[in-house]
Design a protein around this nucleic acid. Sequence first.
DNA 1: GCGATGTTACTCGGATACTAACTGTCCGAGTAAGCCAGG
DNA 2: CCTGGCTTACTCGGACAGTTAGTATCCGAGTAACATCGC
Lengths: 176, 176
Amino acid sequence: MSHISNGVEYALHCLLFLSGRPGGAREASVRDLADLQGLPADYMAKLFTKLSKAGLVRATEGVRGGFALARAPAAISVLDVVDAIDGGKALFECREVRQRCAVFEGNEPDWTGVPPCTIHAVMLSAEQRMREELARHTLADLAHRVATVTPPAYNQSVVTWLDTRAASKRPGRAES
Amino acid sequence: MSHISNGVEYALHCLLFLSGRPGGAREASVRDLADLQGLPADYMAKLFTKLSKAGLVRATEGVRGGFALARAPAAISVLDVVDAIDGGKALFECREVRQRCAVFEGNEPDWTGVPPCTIHAVMLSAEQRMREELARHTLADLAHRVATVTPPAYNQSVVTWLDTRAASKRPGRAES
DNA sequence: GCGATGTTACTCGGATACTAACTGTCCGAGTAAGCCAGG
DNA sequence: CCTGGCTTACTCGGACAGTTAGTATCCGAGTAACATCGC
């Protein structure tokens, strides 16, 4: 299992669609976002509730509701998304092996408890480097980089796909 | 589950004992090393075979056999140990979400395959930063730092523990 | 006394559970927007 | 014309199964060192 889960990737792709819409700040439903990318919709709903609790997106309820970014794309970093989805789990969990040393025979001295253990310190610094790199990139950066790769016709077709999808479903007794 | 497993921690602690022995290059059996630190011995044996395959330690078979470092402590980095135990697994696995976009309807264009996807690139750079930090620290560095924290009496008692342990078991019909 | 045999402790590798996390699905409750019927 | 009810599509949250990786244990095979036994 990779440390950064698939959920993070799913969420980032969806957030990119949300931030990439021209004119900004329009909202989209989870189901449309998931179907557009071939992702499991129910699972995405779970991920979006996590994003909402982290304050990255804002939900509007009811019919024609959906999610929109709660902040500007430039104010949301990849690290924010990773922490929101994966819960800020540690890269490494120290098991405090030093305290189990057989030489102590049950009563370990006080110097083994001093934080952090030497090996743990190395892992913490490595994790810090990783987090710094993730924090350097924002949704705006990613969206801009994606825009340089994708042809404009693709962006247009995505917009029309979402629009026709939104138009096809309307509340009330439409099909009766 | 943390990305850097407990096995890496176990291995690093054992390697520190191996590199910290004064006079260097003496060997110790897996069972002694495990019992000294209260670690599962059978599991440690598996980890040491991984270390051996990676060329970090050298095994001598038979009675009074054991493991010794294959290189100088200054020539073994924490990254070497992580890769040997955890198999160099990726921090993030790209699922190539772009190729599933519903707009394509089965026939994705060629530009989605260009490596790597924008999100993947960010994760790769973050992983690279982490690996650089892990590669900066060697066993010699760790051993030196540990030596500044632990009292000298502790090191002496560990040596005597290992020696008495080695002396208590001898082949042949010792206990008859 | 010297070589053959046996015992012991080690490495090596496979087979097998157990546990935890991630992934994905299903379902019910609550809410807002629009449509329709009745006053 | 206006108000109340109804339908719909959404969010929200819990419950649950499948898969995978890490953790841990057990066991058998092969090997080297040393003690003992037999010549």
